[in-house]
């Protein structure tokens, strides 16, 4: 480990800190009540007294909406990524540890599942279960499991071919012992990097779904919802779309940068490759 942190890691961590910070802060304090309507003060521009980032078309405070929306994004991202983590890594390990024929089948199945876009899965689920935050989380989790498995399979197979695994096998260790004790710890970096990237992806999918109206419903506040509600007045009040979007992009960028930075820090081969 070098004593100086790479720029990517620093910027990424700061952005994530801000995102998590405003999300958590909304639990204890927001400038206004998240659901308070004030039609008299509707469409106030940013910088208005008492409304730093202005108000939306129903007079709700934009700063408050962004903070509460960050909390919702955070919940969806944490729950769906965490729920996909164990089954995804497990599926990847099982595939990597299988014999050639079953590995080929499992690997293909993972590819097919990967080809289905998360948003499409969510739309099918929303038809069946109705639109809600739960539908969003189930859909994102269902899509993340094969993504995680896909990322794990390659590195896990590389580890399986290493000498120390050969030695463990020669000394009579079973397949599962090897997968858990030798392969799993060695693919840790890959899993950590991918988790960070999945967080970014979850934030984007959640926003797209609630923009389409199949994600969270009022009284829950979500970022995508803010875009949906402001689309009709985007000509007169572009900041209603601009500001929440910038906040969202910075949060997504934070997780992407953290993932890239971690990959560079944890996988030295990648670093040398990028430098040469």
């Amino acid at each position: 480990m070098s004593s100086r942190w790479p720029t990517q890691l620093v910027v990424g961590t700061v952005l994530i800190g801000l995102f998590v910070g405003i999300g958590l802060m909304s639990l204890v304090w927001t400038p206004h009540d998240a659901e308070a309507l004030n039609v008299a003060a509707r469409l106030a521009p940013p910088g208005t007294e008492g409304h730093l980032l202005g108000t939306d078309r129903l007079g709700r405070d934009v700063t408050t909406q962004i903070m509460v929306g960050a909390r919702n994004s955070l919940v969806v991202a944490v729950v769906s990524t965490a729920a996909a983590l164990v089954p995804g890594v497990f599926l990847g390990l099982v595939t990597a540890g299988s014999k050639r024929a079953s590995r080929e089948v499992l690997s293909r199945a993972t590819d097919v599942a990967l080809a289905l876009p998360g948003i499409l899965v969510a739309l099918v689920l929303a038809t069946a279960m109705g639109a809600s935050n739960t539908t969003t989380m189930v859909a994102i989790t269902a899509w993340f499991i094969p993504v995680m498995a896909r990322v794990v399979i390659g590195p896990a197979r590389q580890i399986m071919a290493r000498e120390f695994v050969e030695a463990a096998r020669a000394s009579g260790r079973g397949k599962w012992y090897i997968l858990i004790r030798h392969v799993l710890p060695n693919i840790g970096p890959v899993v950590i990097v991918q988790t960070s990237l999945l967080f970014a992806s979850a934030i984007l999918i959640e926003a797209a779904l609630s923009y389409l109206g199949v994600g969270a419903q009022r009284p829950t506040t979500s970022w995508g919802m803010l875009f949906n509600e402001s689309q009709a007045v985007v000509g007169e009040a572009p900041t209603l779309v601009l500001i929440p979007g910038v906040v969202m992009v910075l949060a997504v960028l934070g997780f992407n940068l953290l993932g890239d930075g971690l990959r560079a820090a944890l996988d030295p081969r990648q670093t040398t490759k990028a430098v040469v």
């Binding site: 970014a200 797209a208 779309v241 601009l242 979007g245 992009v249």
Partner: peptide, 11 residues
């Protein structure tokens, strides 16, 4: 990469 298409569309 961090910018969602629907947001660019709205802008």
């Amino acid at each position: 990469i961090a910018i969602p298409p629907f947001w660019v569309g709205l802008l």
